[in-house]
């Protein structure tokens, strides 16, 4: 099939970008979306044009490296990562608009590649349990209720791709933060640092320039791992608790 691609091209962070149009023929419906872009890039190289830069690594939906705004939807029309989106979700003759994540906290590096190091800094601000290697007690010394463990796991599946931020009209990273707060807060091991964790992470989130949450739910709809909105409620609850405790 044949598609028309409108792609954001921007040589580097300092330059101004613009949308460019490319026609691509011979697209197979079995291709993944990124393989389609690989084919485009091979074409561009053959023509002596700079290939389109985009991030991807595992290409099996787990590393969180890929992420494109496709026709106005983070990761495109299916609930999955960009790398797991296939061209069979499109039709012959379709026009496909491809943009990078838009967030001032995720500055564009080149074309469709953005800098998501803000997420690392949010984790550095408290998204962990402090336990030095070798100081851990025997694993069975603290039983964890099965339902708590399941909930912790479900929200720990966050891949840090940034789709929540990209989809949020406020550019908020609350779903990302809430997932970590809930993951660690559900477990007995996470209790001692519960207050400092939420306060630190939220302060970093705000300092990075992410917007505030207005609970409208675009994030969870875009999340390839279907992290539910509950985690934001949990985040808010924990922040309250920290306020009450004078943090």
């Amino acid at each position: 099939m044949k598609v028309t691609l409108k792609i954001w091209r921007q040589p580097d962070a300092a330059s101004k970008g613009a949308m460019h149009t490319y026609e691509l023929d011979g697209v197979s419906s079995d291709m993944s979306f990124l393989e389609m872009l690989d084919v485009l890039n091979e074409d561009l190289i053959a023509k002596g044009e700079d290939p389109v830069a985009f991030d991807s690594d595992c290409r099996e939906g787990i590393c969180g490296m890929c992420g494109l705004m496709i026709n106005g939807q983070a990761h495109g029309p299916e609930v999955t990562t960009t790398c797991q989106l296939h061209m069979r979700s499109f039709k012959d003759g379709d026009e496909i608009v491809i943009e990078p994540w838009r967030s001032d906290a995720f500055p564009v590096i080149k074309d469709l590649v953005v800098d998501r190091s803000a997420f690392d800094r949010i984790i550095q601000a408290g998204g962990y349990i402090s336990v030095n290697t070798g100081s851990a007690p025997e694993a069975h010394s603290v039983p964890v209720p099965r339902d708590d463990a399941i909930r912790a796991f479900n929200v720990a599946t966050c891949i840090g791709c940034g789709a929540c931020v990209a989809a949020c009209p406020n550019g908020s990273a609350s779903l990302f933060m809430g997932a970590k707060i809930t993951h660690l807060g559900e477990l007995p091991q996470g209790q001692p640092e519960r207050d400092t964790r939420v306060v630190g992470m939220v302060a970093q989130h705000d300092a990075e320039g992410f917007g505030g949450c207005t609970n409208i739910g675009e994030c969870t709809a875009a999340c390839p791992k279907e992290i539910p909105l509950d985690v934001i409620s949990r985040l808010n609850w924990d922040l309250h608790a920290a306020l009450r405790h004078g943090r």
Binding site: A125, V199, G200, V202, D206, L235, L239, L243, R247
Partner: peptide, 10 residues
């Protein structure tokens, strides 16, 4: 960091 200065407090 202070909880009271966060967007969530707002």
């Amino acid at each position: 960091a202070r909880a009271s200065r966060s967007t969530i407090t707002l």
